[in-house]
Amino acid sequence: MLDFFGAIGGAIMTPLYYIISVVLVGFHKVLGTFLDPEGGSAWALSIVGLTLVIRAALIPLFVKQIKSSRNMQLIQPKVKELQKKYGHDRERLAQETMALYKDSGTNPFASCLPILLQMPIFFALFRLIDQAADGKAHGVLTTQLAEDFGQAKIWGVVPISETLTGSWGDQWSVVTLAAFLVLAMTATTFLTQRQLMSKNMPADALTGPYAQQQKMLLIVLPVVFAVGGIAFPIGVLLYWTTSNLWTMGQQFYVIRNNPAPGTPAAVAKAERDKAKAAKKGHVVDGEVPGAVDVQEAPEAPRAAPRQQPKRQTRSQRKKR
């Protein structure tokens, strides 16, 4: 049975080893032209480059995640109505809720896709770095490159393959950098979730099961990363912190430029657009800035037409 699961795991991880190692080695060759190829800076920046490539490839999924999250927010009033109507019948409530999701084109699990797809890559990088420290190569990494990678030291003192727990009380430079990266990883995770809830969620979505789920993630995810991070190698912490910074910046851009309707971000964008239009002299609220309000002068009364005398016949003139 163990051999069976091992074969499945190998079938999944082997392609990831090749994908990760190709990108990693490619960046290392470029950076090695002006940095020490065996130094930690070249390998650390290669991990940053790997992170950027992976996150760029996941942009379509991020767009789908944003759309799904927005739809979830907008249909919350309808979800509450269903809860009031079918709260006594859980099976019917579930059926009607799923029908609502289908009709609105909402996938409640789409918000987890980027994280779920990154997890195999995360574990593949973890094993790649961990086993490279023992000289074991994966993918396109040669044995020599694997040894260089596993033994590379950032600033010449902090090994990429070391962990906070493995260096506690021994290598304080490793402990300091690892602790900083763990805190940065935890803080960026918290701030990303907080940014979403405070800026891009309408008032109706701040209550109910969806809001409770978001509030739970706001606490649970940073704790999970903080606890797990103490056992991650420096290289993996560098990858995850860079990934979180990418997520924060990407989400900030989307919320600022394409916020969900009825949210504080939407109000802020409307005010910015109004100020920008006023600055350029465009019409704002039906008025043109700088235009003079000219009222039409009332027309002067026309003179009454002069009445012409009636023509009289000759007999009428003689009578006079």
Rank of each mutant, 00 (worst) to 15 (best):
L181F: 01
A211M: 07
I121R: 06
L221I: 11
R92A: 11
V254L: 13
F149Q: 03
Q312S: 07
A94G: 11
T207E: 13
T163R: 05
G229M: 09
T242D: 00
P37Q: 01
L164C: 01
N244A: 04
Q295G: 11
L100Q: 03
R314Y: 10
V223T: 15
Q312K: 09
A265S: 11
L217G: 12
L206Q: 14
L100Y: 00
P159R: 03
H138A: 12
K269R: 15
F109I: 13
V294R: 09
L100A: 08
T186G: 07
W240D: 01
N71V: 12
K136G: 03
P15C: 07
Y86I: 07
L125Q: 06
N71F: 07
G49S: 11
R311G: 08
A99T: 09
V174P: 03
V288C: 03
V294S: 04
L24F: 09
Q195S: 14
T188S: 15
F190C: 05
E96W: 09
L113Y: 11
K318D: 11
L74F: 03
I59F: 14
T189H: 14
Q214M: 14
Q95V: 11
L221H: 01
F109M: 15
T163M: 05
S69I: 09
Q144S: 15
A231W: 12
A11Q: 10
V254Y: 10
A146N: 00
Y101G: 05
T33K: 10
H138P: 00
V79I: 15
Y253L: 12
A137S: 13
G150I: 01
G166D: 09
P289D: 04
Q250Y: 12
G32Y: 04
A11R: 09
T313E: 10
F34N: 03
L164W: 07
A179V: 08
W155P: 02
H28K: 09
R311F: 10
L125K: 05
W240Q: 06
T188K: 04
P305S: 13
S161A: 14
Q214D: 10
N258H: 12
R92Y: 07
K310S: 12
L181M: 13
T97F: 00
R302F: 00
L191G: 00
L145Q: 15
M216F: 12
W43G: 01
R256S: 12
L82R: 04
L100W: 08
D273Y: 03
G10P: 01
R311L: 10
M197G: 04
V63G: 02
A291R: 13
